[in-house]
């Protein structure tokens, strides 16, 4: 191809993609469209950064736990940042609460200062991303999977199945989410609440949101000829729902899920703040806020840092969700 015809080459360069006939579906197309949108791109970067941090921290803690045992030896935390996020330092090492490095008395080795036990706040903040991202994804995942199954079955079959499923879901919907989750957490954990119960609770509380959305989509998709064609060719109902109905109803659900991750993180942070989520000494943003609330006046930074972390993360997911919504909406042209 070294001696390729210059004319052909020019042609190729002039028409790299013919937009009219380019695929208007698919993940790569959607992502490309999201990238064109400045705010959505910002959201994507924030979400990417938070997920990267969480993944990094998870790998780090797994490696060190496997190597040295629980808590004491986090490679990243111990060696790079010089302070463990969960361990209370011995009294001798313990320093008084340090402010961030730019304030009076701050030191660069603890860039965001230390908490009342002398633990490095920056390390704890970064380790908090692990909890937040896991919580956001797992809880939303529970809601998404549960809601999709309930909504799709309900919408596809209609009749009494629809009535039973949707009325149940509406009862669930009528109970305030926070109350539902607190009661669930306390009962299931036998009075010793922890983060995993809160996550499952929040996931269940979100089933109705997803179920109602996907049901409304399924109601229109099930009337399509290709569903009838699938039935006429002898595809079993389960496969019609899984392979034909759900994939065609999924775009708005994806948008909702992205937005919902932000909401979930906020709710679980709230639960941790109230004492029904992550328990000390776990580094979690909501739990950190909760511990900091007694020191708001002497050490305002202890409240501000986790608050900012929550704010930025949720904003990231919301911007990405909005961007996805625009990208998946065929009425909005680029």
């Amino acid at each position: 191809m070294a001696h390729a015809d210059p004319d052909t080459q020019a042609d190729v360069e002039q028409e790299p993609v013919d937009d009219e006939f380019e695929a208007k579906v698919g993940l790569s197309y959607t992502l490309a469209k999201v990238k064109q949108d400045t705010t959505a791109r910002l959201g994507m970067y924030i979400v990417g950064a938070v997920i990267f941090l969480a993944a990094f921290v998870t790998i780090d803690s797994n490696i060190s736990t496997l190597t040295f045992g629980r808590i004491d030896n986090f490679v990243f935390a111990e060696n790079v940042l010089g302070n463990h996020p969960e361990r209370h330092p011995p009294a001798a090492e313990a320093e008084t609460t340090l402010p961030p490095f730019f304030a009076d008395g701050g030191v660069l080795s603890h860039p965001l200062g230390t908490d009342i036990y002398g633990r490095d706040y920056f390390t704890r903040l970064i380790y908090g991303s692990q909890v937040s991202v896991t919580v956001g994804i797992v809880a939303t995942g529970i809601g998404l999977i549960g809601g999709t199954i309930v909504g799709a079955v309900s919408g596809y079959y209609g009749g009494w199945i629809d009535d039973v499923f949707m009325r149940t879901v509406e009862i669930l919907y009528s109970i305030p989410a926070l109350v539902l989750v607190i009661v669930f957490t306390v009962f299931v954990s036998g009075g010793r609440p922890d983060i995993q119960y809160a996550v499952i609770g929040v996931g269940i509380a979100f089933i109705p949101v997803f179920a109602r959305l996907i049901r409304s989509r399924v109601l229109s998709v099930r009337e399509m000829d290709y569903i009838e064609a699938a039935r006429a060719s002898g595809v079993r109902d389960r496969n019609i729902i899984l392979r034909h109905v759900i994939p065609n109803s999924f775009a708005p659900v994806l948008v909702l899920a992205t937005l919902q991750i932000g909401v979930t993180i906020l709710i679980v942070a709230g639960l941790s703040f109230l004492g029904y989520g992550a328990q000390p000494p776990t580094a979690d943003w909501g739990q950190m806020l909760s511990s900091a609330r007694g020191f708001m006046l002497p050490s305002p930074w202890l409240s501000i840092w986790p608050g900012l972390a929550i704010l930025v993360t949720i904003m990231g997911f919301n911007l990405l969700g909005d961007g996805l919504q625009d990208a998946l909406d065929p009425r909005i042209k680029d």
Partner: peptide, 25 residues
Amino acid sequence: MRTQVRGNEIAIIFQDPMESLNPVY
């Protein structure tokens, strides 16, 4: 009906070719 007749014994072609194929596959 599903396993013995639909598709393998009697097949059906629908009116609207635009709507009869699943757009995601």
